[in-house]
Design a protein around this nucleic acid. Structure first.
Lengths: 151, 151
DNA sequence: GTTGCTGCAAACAATTTGCAGTGTG
DNA sequence: CACACTGCAAATTGTTTGCAGCAAC
């Protein structure tokens, strides 16, 4: 995925809605793209508010994240207790997540058959799916081996 | 599932941990059981704090819900924006949820094959699953038909 | 210029916590 | 009778909002 293209599309999106294309918004897209695929808002705030140049306020971060969600470049992918982990999903194909409850690592996976089965269930229930989220919480292989070493 | 039995088990659980078996806690189990299977904490608080007899405070509701989660009788099943919907899952077999984004209705379903595929993925990834949550957001059949009527 | 955007601080919502008093084992 | 539990109010955390000044179109 090309960030420049993404930004152009985002500009289009903003204009279509009568919103304005501002430096803060475009800067934030860059920041988020360079941050890594998974983040929590508070982390992002620290990363972005700190940066001397083109820093934006906490409010703007929240507001822009919301816009980017509507635009479709960002999703809430993991909800754990009071934490919300977002994903910069622009251009990424759909997938689900394994979450290690020990080290917090997030592993992505995709299983076609699972998607198909979901569609099947929805058909049976006469339910029109819009989006879904499958989170599997557990222990990743590294954390497992470090357990063994402890013995 | 028999509530009396559940309460006895919960008492056991409390004793094992050196916690105390109090009226508030047992009352709350009754209240939650009679509330219906899905709830948000604030609803529960209103339901429970209001009740003249054996009412408990908001703090106790939070504290007890947490205990019941550890005990395994309650789970966070739906996370939507800032809302958390809990389920009184005691004795219920595992299942997933369809959530109507229009009317808020929650439909439960279970698909063996989906569970199996998840296990398979975890094996491939050498990941030990502890629990998971699959939420499918969409439009239920009633909401769909009311759309049609609007035309 | 008009209107939307930003930063700030205040408001809000959900949840947690400290403490003094009460109940349980 | 020790120590955990409860209620209360205050503290936290995460998020939203009102408003005055600034920027985009």
């Amino acid at each position: 995925m090309d960030i420049q293209e993404l930004k152009r599309n985002f500009e289009q999106f903003l204009k279509q809605r009568g919103y304005k294309v501002t430096k803060s918004r475009l800067n934030l897209v860059d920041k988020i793209a360079s941050y890594g695929s998974h983040f929590e808002i508070e982390q992002l705030v620290h990363y972005v508010v700190g940066s001397s140049k083109d820093g934006v306020s906490r409010s703007t971060v929240y507001r822009t994240v919301k816009l980017l969600q509507e635009f479709g470049a960002i999703r809430e992918v993991i909800k754990l207790g009071n934490r919300t982990i977002y994903e910069f999903s622009a251009g990424k194909p759909h997938h689900e997540h394994l979450v290690c409850v020990e080290c917090g690592k997030i592993i992505e996976f995709y299983k076609d058959e699972i998607e198909e089965l979901q569609d099947k269930v929805c058909q049976e229930m006469d339910f029109t799916p819009l989006h879904h989220r499958l989170e599997i919480f557990g222990i990743c292989s590294e954390c497992k081996s470090s357990h063994e070493n402890r013995r």
